[in-house]
């Protein structure tokens, strides 16, 4: 349960990245002072439930980003029309006709952004357009699940 510093070449940040293993290995982005505090309390055998921004998981040394990592990932971007983005945040893929601008190659993971370059989700480039991996609608779906429970 101990938090330890990690480096991830997929993430661009001046902040500190920490990994901790609960049921799986989770990665967080924290401020310098937060890291100092974590080191202090770990000496007292106390371990945070989380710290800073949860940016994903590590499975067998491979990094799988969470939706909150979107603003920090070193990925190419695909700019998409607003109407298609609305459907994307409900879990749908994106068709080529809805793409305004595309960087990256077939099968590459990309950041999906709106016309103002704001992060909306992650996907893979496919022949038909973008295969959805994750989107910011997850925050809402999480809240709905919690309210139902």
């Amino acid at each position: 349960m101990k938090y330890e510093k990690v480096d991830l070449e997929e993430v661009k940040t001046k902040d500190i990245l920490l990994a901790v293993t609960f049921t799986k290995k989770q990665v967080y982005m924290v401020s310098e002072k937060a890291w100092e505090v974590i080191q202090t309390i770990q000496k007292k055998e106390r371990f945070p439930f989380f710290a800073g921004i949860y940016i994903g998981d590590m499975i067998k040394d491979k990094y799988y980003p969470s939706i909150s990592a979107g603003d920090y990932l070193k990925l190419k971007k695909v700019k998409v029309k607003d109407d298609a983005l609305m459907k994307f945040t409900y879990g749908r893929d994106i068709q080529n006709r809805d793409i305004i601008q595309k960087e990256g190659e077939l099968r590459e993971m990309v950041r999906v952004v709106n016309k103002d370059n704001e992060f909306v989700g992650l996907g893979y480039i496919r022949e038909f357009g973008i295969k959805r991996v994750a989107d910011i609608g997850e925050y809402l779906r999480l809240e709905k699940r919690k309210n139902q429970n």
């Binding site: 982005m29 401020s31 002072k33 937060a34 106390r46 800073g52 921004i53 909150s68 603003d71």
Partner: peptide
């Protein structure tokens, strides 16, 4: 996470 807050240690 949604609000991009990095300086929190939650116990």
């Amino acid at each position: 996470s949604r609000l991009g807050v990095k300086n929190v240690v939650a116990l």
